[in-house]
Design a protein around this nucleic acid. Structure first.
Lengths: 230, 230, 230, 230
DNA sequence: CATGAATGAGTGTTCATTCAT
DNA sequence: GATGAATGAACACTCATTCAT
C-alpha cells in the first residue's frame, strides 16, 4: 500500500513534469527552457525534477520517447476499431490532421531534430530512439493496412514529405496566422495526405494498380508534365 | 582617404562578423551561439563585435536583413540578364534549388522564424523586416515576370509551400543524409517548383489558363482524383 | 521482547551507520562526504540515518565519541590482562603500532581536528569530548601504570609528539607508500615510542631517574649533543 | 604601453587572487572554500577569478606551485648569502622555524596532501608537481650544502619526519594553543632539526663521521637503548 | 523504524555586456 | 576601432533535510 502510494505519486509527478516540459520546451526551445520554469509549470520545484530525471537532456529524451510512444499507442487503438482499409485510412488521415492542431508537439518535434543536428554526440542516442519509433510504427501498424509496400523508397519519401509539410505549415501558421489560417493549414495537409498516401493504399486495397514507377514526386511531375504539355 | 580606409576596414570587420555569425548561429542556434565563438570565427575578439553591434539580438537582425537583401540583389541581377519569361523562370528555379545547397542559410531562416515565434516583443521588428523583404521581392521583381497574379491567395500558398519544403527538406537532409540524399532533395524541390510555380507563370505568360479553382494543393488533389478515378 | 528486538535492530542500524560513516568520512572528508553514500555503505537509505541522527554533524560527533570510547575500552581490556609495568608497556606499544594500520581511523582523527579548527562554534563541543576522552585515558588507565608523572608538561609534550607522528606518518604513507613503506612507518613509530614513552615509564617503574631537565625534545638534543661532542 | 598596463593589472589580479585563495583555502579547506569568498577576499568578483583560472581545482594547483616555487626561491636567496656550511645550516634552520609561524601555508600543505589522497585522478598531476619541487630543492640547493648524502634513504626519512612534525605541531598549536604554545612548537621543531639534520651536515662538513648505520630513527633507538640499558 | 520523493538553499560555472586602455 | 580583463546576472545541478507513507 505504502509503496503503491509512493509509486502512484511518483508517477503522477513524472507525468506532470513531462507535460510541463512539453509546454516549456515548445514555448522556449531546449536551450532557453529553464528547469525552474518547467518545475513551476508542473506545480513542483526543481528538486522534484531531479528526483525523476538526471539532467535537462534526459528529460528531453524522455519526452521524445513518451511523445512517440503515446502517439503510437493512440494511433493503434484508433485503427483497431476499424476493419476496412478505407476506414483505417480515414482514421489515419484524421490523426494526421489532428496533429497539426497540437502546436506544442509539432514545435517539439522540430526541436528534437535541431537538437540532434547540433549535438552530434547525442545523435546515436536520438537516432536509436527514432529508429525504434519508426520501426514499431511500420511493422506493427502499417503492415495491417497494407502488407508490404511495393516501393519502399517512395514510401519513405512520402512520409518525409508529410512530416515536412506538417511541421512546416504548423510553424508557418504559428508564426503568422494571418498569412496561413488554421483552415488553410488543415486543407493543405489533407490534400497532401490524399495525394501522397491514399492512392497507394487504396490501390493495393482495391487491387487497382498504381502507376508503377511513380514516386511521390514523380506524381507531381506527372501532373506538372501534363499541364506543361497542354 | 584615411577616413575611407578606416571605413573600409570597419566595413570589412562588420562583414566578417556577419559571415561568422551566419555560420555560428546556424551551427549552434541563436541561444547557444556564443558571441566569443562568433568573434573568434571572424578572426577578431568580442571587442570588435561590440564596436559594430549593440547586442546579440542586433547582430541577429542585421544578419536577417543582410541575408534577405543579398538574396534579393543576387536574384535581381540574375533575372535581369534574361528577357523572356521562360528564361527567367529557369533562373528562378535554379536559384531555388541553389538555396537548398546552402544549409547554413536555411537553418538560419528557420532560426529566424523560431526566434520570432518565441520573442513576441521582437515580432514587430521582425515582421517589419520580413514584410519589407517580401514586399520588395514581390513588387520589384516578380511584377516584372507576371504583372499581378490572378489568384493572390493561391500564389501566397504556393510560396508558403515552396518555403516550407525548402527548409524542411534541407533540415531533413542535414539530419539524416542517408534517409534523404542531396539528389533526392534537389529532385523533389525541383518537381515541387515545377508543379506549383511554373504552370501559373507559363499559363499567364502564354495566356493558357490554369484550371481555375485549384489552390496549391487542389492541384495535388486533381492528380489524386485522376488516379483514384481510373 | 518485541521492544528488545526493535532495540537490537535499531542498535545494529546505528552501528552499521557509524561504521559506514567512518569509511566514508575518512575516504572523502567531512565536507565532501555525502549522507547518501554513508547510508548506502551501511546498507540502508538516508531515512535510516535520520532515524538515528539529527544532522551530519551529529553523526560526526557520535563517531568521534564512539571511536574514542572503543579505543579506550579496548586498551583497558588489553592492559588489564597484564600485571607488570613492562608487560603493560609492551601492550601499549603494540596498540600504538596497531593504530597506524588503521588508516581510516587516523584520517578521521585528522578530520576531527580540522573540523574543530574550522568550526569555532563547535570547538566547545569538540573540546569537551576530547577532554573527556583524554581525561579518562589519563586517570583511569595510565594512572595504573605510573601514579602521577613527575613532569606533566613533559608528558603532554611526549603525547603530542606521538600523536603527531602517528597521524603524520600514516598520512604520508597513505599519500605515497613508495616514499614511506608500512614497514618504515611501523619502525619509526616504534622507535619514537621507545624513546619518548618507555624510558619514563621504566624509569619510574624501576626507580631509575630520568635525566631531570629533559623535555621531550631535549632528549633528542642530548643525543645530538653527544654525537656532536665526540 | 596599453598592453603593459593590461598585463600589469592582470598580474596584480592574479596575485591577489592567489593570496586570497591561500587564506580562504587554509581557513575553510578546499571543499568548503567558496569561490565567491576567495573573489571577495581578493577585492574582485567571481568573474575576475574565471578570467584567470579555469576551475577551482586549477586555482588550487596554481597555488600549490606558487607556494612551492616562492618558498624555493626565498630559500635559495637566503642561502646564497652565506659561504660556510654552518652558516647555511643556521639559515635553513631559521627558514624551517619560520614556516611554523605561517599557519595558513601549513594548513594548505596539509590540504594539498588530503586532496591528493582523495582525488586519485589528480594524483598524477600533483605528484608531478611535488616531484618537480622536491627535485629542484634537492639538486639545486642542498647539493651546495652537502655534496651527495651517504644514506639517501635516511635522508628521505629525516625529511619526512621534519615535514610531519612541522605540519603536525602547527596543526596542534592552531587547534589548542594552550596545550601547545608557539614557544613549545618552535623549541620542539628546532630540536628536531638539530637532531635530524644538523649532525649529518656538520659531520660531512667537518669530516667527523656520523655513526654509520644510524638512520634518523636509529638515533632515537640508540638514545633509547642507552637509557634502557642503564 | 525505515523509505524515498520532494524541498530549497547553495555553489560552480557560463556568458552577454562594460570599460579602461 | 579594437582589445581583453572584469562584471554580474543567470542557471544547471547537488545535497542536507523534511515529511507523507
Amino acid at each position: 500500500m505504502a509503496v503503491n502510494k509512493h509509486q502512484q505519486k511518483s508517477d503522477a509527478t513524472r507525468r506532470k513534469l513531462l507535460e510541463a516540459a512539453l509546454r516549456i520546451f515548445a514555448r522556449d526551445g531546449f536551450e532557453a527552457a529553464r528547469l525552474e520554469d518547467i518545475a513551476a509549470e508542473s506545480g513542483h520545484t526543481r528538486g522534484a525534477f531531479y528526483a525523476n530525471f538526471d539532467t535537462k537532456e534526459d528529460l528531453f529524451f524522455a519526452l521524445l520517447e513518451q511523445q512517440a510512444s503515446e502517439r503510437l499507442k493512440d494511433l493503434q487503438q484508433r485503427l483497431e476499431k476499424h476493419d476496412t482499409t478505407p476506414a483505417r485510412l480515414r482514421t489515419l488521415r484524421a490523426c494526421y490532421l489532428e496533429r497539426a492542431k497540437d502546436c506544442p508537439s509539432m514545435l517539439l518535434t522540430l526541436e528534437f531534430k535541431l537538437f540532434a543536428l547540433r549535438h552530434p554526440k547525442m545523435r546515436a542516442r536520438l537516432a536509436a530512439a527514432h529508429r525504434r519509433i519508426r520501426a514499431s510504427l511500420n511493422y506493427e501498424l502499417l503492415t495491417k493496412l497494407l502488407p508490404s509496400h511495393p516501393d519502399a523508397e517512395q514510401k519513405e519519401m512520402d512520409k518525409i514529405l508529410l512530416e515536412v509539410l506538417l511541421v512546416g505549415l504548423v510553424l508557418e501558421h504559428a508564426y503568422d496566422p494571418k498569412r496561413l489560417s488554421a483552415k488553410q493549414t488543415a486543407a493543405t495537409l489533407g490534400r497532401a495526405f490524399d495525394l501522397l498516401i491514399a492512392p497507394q493504399m487504396l490501390a493495393r486495397a482495391t487491387a487497382v494498380p498504381v502507376p508503377s514507377a511513380s514516386p511521390a514526386v514523380s506524381k507531381l511531375r506527372v501532373a506538372a508534365d501534363r499541364r506543361a504539355a497542354r
